[in-house]
Design a protein around this nucleic acid. Structure first.
Lengths: 150, 150
DNA sequence: TATTGTTATACTCTATAACTATA
DNA sequence: TATAGTTATAGAGTATAACAATA
């Protein structure tokens, strides 16, 4: 089998939105958690990168600074994050996830993974390997080039 | 390599949103087209299923009827779709894509595919095969069960 | 009564433009 | 003057609740 770029592009365009919708609707169905995908990603990124500035987050997520500022506002209101002044550059903020936010993030992650894993349990191990490998390839292909900001 | 359901679930949850964001931002960057992903999917589905009812569309897309009604309103306003009465059941509508809508759909498809294909041209043929195979598996795993409505 | 669809309402996501504060 | 961030504003996507029309 030879797969052209066009054919694999077509597959991506058909299938990715379907999987995305599944993830989204599953996440929203957990009323107790009530995290949207952007909120989830924001929380996850800042959890991994404690003390990030707003620009670092927006760079990573491919969103504009106002969009991230909005997202952060909502997460702070709900007690999941903090926004502090940078110690040496007062223009910047230092974002961090609270323990409450971390707990919610972990629960949301666990439940969403459990849901996906349950779906994937019907897939043969060989095919799961194909999926994992494809995700690695896609991750490298679509990863944002990291713009460094000192 | 043995991949558990949990591991492949984690990969999906990390990578799918990234690819989705690429597709979305590319689609929006074509100012002349100005189709969002939901608009694109709606148009594409109705193009493939001429005369669909609103419920058929909402079932397929996993959206509520009011959401689809909204989407359809916007597409009709912009001359891409029509909404007609069903000949024998006056509760229903018959949705169809206009030739203008089809032209826009085709252009959007072509340009988005070209963009994705360009990204994928850096991927080896073997790896493209892995991606294509993974998409097939995911398509079957996450496909909505078709609720038939006579 | 059940089904199909719309309207009313509200909230989130996202962007652009304009602004403030700091470097 | 350049950078970091917020506020103002607007449009799209989505849901639930309430409704109207038809079967």
């Amino acid at each position: 089998m030879t797969v052209t770029s066009e054919e694999s592009a077509r597959e991506l365009l058909e299938v990715v939105p379907v999987v995305m919708r599944e993830i989204r609707s599953q996440m929203r169905s957990r009323r107790s958690l009530e995290l949207t995908i952007p909120q989830f990603r924001t929380l996850a990124f800042i959890n991994r990168n404690k003390g990030s500035s707003l620009y670092e987050v927006s760079d990573h997520m491919g969103l504009t600074p106002p969009s991230v500022s909005n997202l952060v506002d909502g997460l702070i209101e709900r007690g999941m994050m903090t926004r502090e002044e940078h110690p040496t550059d007062r223009r910047r903020v230092r974002l961090a996830v609270t323990s409450h936010g971390r707990a919610i993030l972990e629960t949301a992650t666990r439940e969403t993974l459990a849901y996906l894993a349950e779906k994937l349990s019907n897939v043969t191990p060989d095919n799961r390997e194909v999926i994992a490998k494809a995700m690695e390839i896609l991750r490298m292909t679509f990863a944002r080039s990291v713009r460094s900001r000192s």
